[in-house]
């Protein structure tokens, strides 16, 4: 069988991808390999001294109640923030997709938080939820005469970091949902209406299935963002507190690696995170084949 190729020889093709390959190897594959290797050592001082300990770092992580709590925190954070940011994102996108006056302004405003650097967003939320001088408690005090310990109660603190993350992510989801909504052929919706479907029926039976490819894409990207980009919010707003109740795995990796000099443990945590993300992505892709409605 003869293959039609754009390039005369494989070498030419290789030459074209070489720069990318070199960059990937230096900045991605080699560090990944090093991380895997490092996770098998007990490392002191960023690698100044190390000794091989096999899987001891992993054994420690899986047997320690502190790390189990960190995994649980991560699961809570990721699941809640992904679900909430997708639901709100879709809701807002549907609203912004209506034929209303000034819809461009609304769309712009909805997308705007995403353009904000995470550090700035983090500081805004820190100011909002400061227990004594924050805006939220100030308003609560005047309206209902209560003030909540936003950052010193564990579930409230988790709520605050999830809120911050969701607020930041919603704009991104709105953009994609808006584009997807506008791509749904009008005749399908009209056909449903003619058949006598209510607005809710149309939405849940027609619109939502048509949005499933983009939803899947957003679940993957939001999950990855929740794993990795939560760092800024947690570092700025709670520092993992109170008593480690908002410490998620990415924050723990940073602390172990760069504050406590436990490079080996941090490497092992990174590997675990890496495996988690790979597995989740595989599951999502598999689910997609069965559940997602792709137009041909």
């Amino acid at each position: 069988m003869e293959r039609h190729s754009l390039y005369k020889s494989k070498l030419t093709a290789l030459m074209f991808i070489l720069p990318t390959l070199v960059i990937l190897i230096i900045f991605l594959y080699y560090p990944t390999f090093q991380t895997f290797k490092m996770s098998l050592y007990r490392v002191a001082f960023l690698g100044l001294s190390k000794q091989f300990v096999g899987l001891e770092n992993y054994r420690y992580i899986f047997s320690s109640p502190e790390y189990r709590k960190i995994f649980l925190n991560t699961a809570i954070f990721v699941v809640l923030s992904v679900v909430i940011s997708l639901v709100i994102g879709l809701f807002l996108a549907v609203l912004a997709n209506q034929k209303i006056k000034g819809k461009t302004v609304f769309r712009l405003l909805l997308i705007w938080p995403y353009a904000l650097p995470p550090a700035v967003a983090g500081v805004i939320f820190l100011f909002l939820f400061n227990e004594q001088s924050g805006m939220v408690n100030y308003i609560l005090k005047h309206v209902a005469n209560i003030a909540l310990p936003w950052l010193s109660k564990s579930y409230l603190a988790m709520g605050v970091v999830i809120t911050a993350f969701v607020w930041k992510m919603v704009g991104y989801n709105v953009v994609f949902y808006l584009a997807a909504l506008q791509n749904i052929p009008k005749d399908i919706i009209e056909a449903a209406k003619v058949e006598g479907a209510s607005i809710f029926q149309t939405f849940f039976k027609v619109t939502l299935p048509m949005l499933s490819p983009i939803t899947l894409f957003l679940v993957v990207t939001n999950t990855i963002a929740a794993f990795f980009e939560s760092f800024t919010f947690i570092d700025l707003i709670t520092k993992g507190g109170p008593a480690d109740s908002t410490t998620v795995i990415i924050y723990s990796i940073y602390r172990d690696g760069f504050e406590y000099f436990k490079t080996g443990l941090a490497a092992a945590e990174s590997v675990i995170l890496f495996i988690c993300v790979v597995i989740l992505t595989l599951i999502q892709l598999r689910v997609s084949r069965r559940m997602v409605h792709y137009e041909k």
Partner: peptide, 21 residues
């Protein structure tokens, strides 16, 4: 006793004092 709710928050403590709270 009050603190901002965030551990190691030096500025938060200073603000409480400076604002005379």
């Amino acid at each position: 006793y009050a603190y901002s709710g965030k551990p190691e928050d030096w500025d938060g403590a200073n603000n409480l004092f400076v604002s005379q709270q």
